[in-house]
C-alpha cells in the first residue's frame, strides 16, 4: 500500500505533500513512519515545515506538529501551509499567495509608452511594449509589462500593498507599490535578461525572478 504522504527536502526546510483522499488517521501514521525511516533528514537543528496537498483544520495542524516535535526530535521553526505552487519561490508566493486584490478590470495598452505619456487606470494594466524613461504607468491593481520597463510605474495606487509588478526586463527609474517608493540601486548591477516581479512584503519592495505557474 502506497504511503499517503511524501517528504520533500527544500532549500528552506521540509515540505510534506499529503494525499487529499486518505483519512487523516492514515496520514498521521504515515508521517510517523516517514519520520522514523528518514531519521537522517532530521539531524539538522531546526526546520521550517510546510505542507500541501490538502486542507487542514487547526486541530489537525496541531496534531501533525506535535507528532513532528515528538518523533523527529528537532526544533520546528514554523509549520504552515504552502501556497499551491510547484516552485519554492517566495516572490511568487508573495504575489499570488497573499494576493488579496482581485481587480477584474484590465486595460491593455499596445505600443511604447514614451517620455511624457501616462497610462492611468483603476484596475490592472498590461503594457504590450516598452515603458520608456519619463513615462508613467499608474494602476490601482497590478502592472504587467510585456517588454522593457524603464520608466516609473505605480501599482496599487490606492494603497493596496498586495499589488505587484511584472516586467520582461525590469529596469525602472522608480517603482511604487501602494505608498512605498523605491528606486534602482545606484551602483552598477548586472541585471538578468529574464522576467522579474516586484512585490511588497513587510513594508519593503522585493524583486525576484518571475517563473510561470504550472497549469
Amino acid at each position: 500500500m502506497s504511503s499517503s504522504v511524501t517528504f520533500k527536502g527544500t532549500v528552506n526546510g521540509l515540505t510534506i505533500v499529503m494525499n487529499e483522499d486518505d483519512p487523516f488517521e492514515k496520514i498521521l501514521s504515515d508521517i510517523e513512519k516517514k519520520i522514523t525511516s528518514a531519521k537522517k533528514f532530521f539531524e539538522e537543528g531546526n526546520l521550517a515545515v510546510r505542507y500541501r496537498g490538502r486542507k487542514l483544520s487547526d486541530e489537525e495542524q496541531r496534531q501533525i506538529l506535535r507528532l513532528l516535535l515528538d518523533k523527529s526530535g528537532v526544533m520546528i521553526n514554523s509549520f504552515s501551509e504552502e501556497a499551491n505552487l510547484s516552485k519554492q519561490d517566495d516572490s511568487l508566493k508573495a504575489a499570488y499567495g497573499a494576493n488579496g486584490n482581485s481587480y477584474e478590470k484590465t486595460k491593455i495598452f499596445c505600443g511604447t509608452v514614451r517620455s511624457g505619456q501616462e497610462v492611468r487606470y483603476d484596475g490592472n494594466v498590461v503594457i504590450v511594449g516598452d515603458v520608456n524613461p519619463g513615462a508613467n504607468v499608474i494602476a490601482k491593481g497590478n502592472i504587467i509589462v510585456v517588454g522593457s520597463l524603464r520608466g516609473m510605474v505605480h501599482a496599487g495606487s490606492d494603497g493596496d500593498p498586495d499589488a505587484y509588478i511584472v516586467a520582461f526586463r525590469l529596469r525602472p527609474m522608480q517603482l511604487r507599490i501602494a505608498d512605498i517608493i523605491t528606486r534602482a540601486p545606484e551602483e552598477y548591477e548586472e541585471k538578468p535578461e529574464t522576467p522579474e516581479i516586484a512585490y511588497v512584503r513587510d513594508g519593503q519592495v522585493y524583486i525576484g525572478s518571475y517563473c510561470f505557474m504550472p497549469s
Binding site: R114, S115, G116, Q117, N132, P133, G134
Partner: peptide, 8 residues
Amino acid sequence: RDADRIIG
C-alpha cells in the same frame, strides 16, 4: 529622452 518625448 527628448527624442522619445517628441516621437510620442
